[in-house]
Simulated assay, not measured.
Amino acid sequence: MSAGIFMALQEKLIACGTSLTIFGMVLRFIAGPASTAIGAVAVGLHRDVFHVAIIQAALPQSITTFIFAKEYGLHADVLSSAVIFGTIVSLPVMIAYYAVMESVH
């Protein structure tokens, strides 16, 4: 079965509940870029390379994580929610990060 068909056949868009989804998105889009910023400062990244590292940390999860979860039976329904919802949310978040970094630059 392909990944797209499995994701389309999910009963709910958010399989793990609203609070857990919000917690996951906060970790993904705030804690991830924040920890990347700390690491980038620690290794001495500056300007454009620093900005690229932050924006890359805010990118949505890839479909590959879902495929591995499906293959090994590790909550594929939850990861399909993360992939779908994370992709939808990532565009405005990345635009906001880009705008903030351009204004700071």
Results as ranks from 00 to 15, higher is better:
I95Y: 06
A42R: 07
A31C: 05
Q56T: 11
H105R: 15
A53H: 11
L74A: 12
S62Q: 09
V78Y: 05
R47H: 14
M7L: 03
S90I: 03
T65C: 05
V83Y: 07
F68E: 05
C16T: 06
Y97S: 04
G44H: 11
M7Y: 00
V26M: 15
M1E: 08
Q10V: 00
Q61L: 11
I63Y: 06
L79Y: 03
V43Q: 04
I63N: 02
L45Q: 13
G39Q: 06
M101L: 15
G73C: 02
T87G: 12
T87Q: 04
I30D: 03
A42Q: 06
G32Y: 03
P60C: 04
V43L: 09
S35D: 02
A57E: 09
H105C: 09
F50D: 05
Q56M: 13
E71K: 15
A76P: 15
R47C: 06
I54F: 01
G73Q: 01
V89W: 03
L45A: 13
A69W: 01
T36S: 15
Q61V: 12
V49S: 10
T64H: 08
S35K: 05
S35T: 14
P60G: 05
F50V: 03
P60H: 02
F23N: 07
V52P: 01
E11F: 06
A99E: 13
I14A: 14
I67F: 05
T36N: 06
A40D: 03
T21A: 14
M94T: 02
V89I: 15
L9G: 14
G39L: 13
I67G: 02
K70M: 12
I14Q: 04
Q61D: 08
T65P: 00
V89L: 13
A76W: 08
L45P: 12
S2M: 12
Q61H: 12
A58E: 04
A76S: 14
V93W: 07
I54H: 04
G39T: 05
G24E: 08
L20G: 06
T18N: 10
M94F: 00
S90K: 01
G73L: 04
E71A: 12
A42C: 14
H105D: 14
A99R: 12
V41Q: 13
I38Y: 13
L13I: 10
M7E: 03
T65H: 09
I14F: 09
F6M: 05
S62T: 15
P60D: 03
V43R: 11
I84K: 12
A34Y: 10
